[in-house]
Amino acid sequence: MATPTVPVYDYSHAEPSLSAYTSMMLKLYFQNLAKLSIAQVLDVGPVCNENILHFARRVKRYYVCDLFLRLNRNRSKGWVFEKVLDHLDHPPGCFEGINLWDFIDHLKNDDISRLVKRCHALLAPGGMMSVTSFEKQWAPAKTYAFVINDGHQVTFRLQRHLDLPRYYHSNRIMTSVLSEFPTVKSFIYRNGVREFLCKND
């Protein structure tokens, strides 16, 4: 008797905490970008086509510098974060927006401070930096792209090519490292995502 065919589904990537959410930070971010006649935005990755299209259709020029992939490649070469940071070699004050996503969750505290200082220098007056970070108990084991959908809804897509460690940073540490910015708005969601919108007033 033939064995019935059973469909096999791959749930290995589906981490239970990663439910979609509607981002208040992105709503504010886009509202602010819309006020600028010429907006140039930098994204540190991971490369995500939906996000590229979403921003590139709304800003004058969208820059991508995939630090996630650089960090991943550097792990085998001795894990020197400065080498990764060297890729942010843009002139000071040239961006109205910087998207860090959850890149800082893959960095140690000292490295976060260096990254935030560099990004602060790259922002134009009035520019904004968006940061996301997971609460400890909700942090996924793997690396995901935050994918922007209509209505500022964010879904997650596993980045199979990335194998990066994840560090937890408490709210106190986050507040401390983002203190370069005079204005920081923060949001927290049921899925454990924390969002920070930092403005360079």
Binding site: G45, P46, V47, C48, N49, I52, L53, A56, R57, K60, R61, Y62, Y63, V64, C65, D66, L69, R70, H87, A145, R157, Q159, R160, H161
Partner: peptide, 16 residues
């Protein structure tokens, strides 16, 4: 138009 697959290394800018 542009299409970039996950996993590609990209450094640069896009103007649509």
């Amino acid at each position: 138009g542009i299409s970039i697959e996950d996993g590609a290394y990209f450094k640069g800018s896009i103007e649509l």
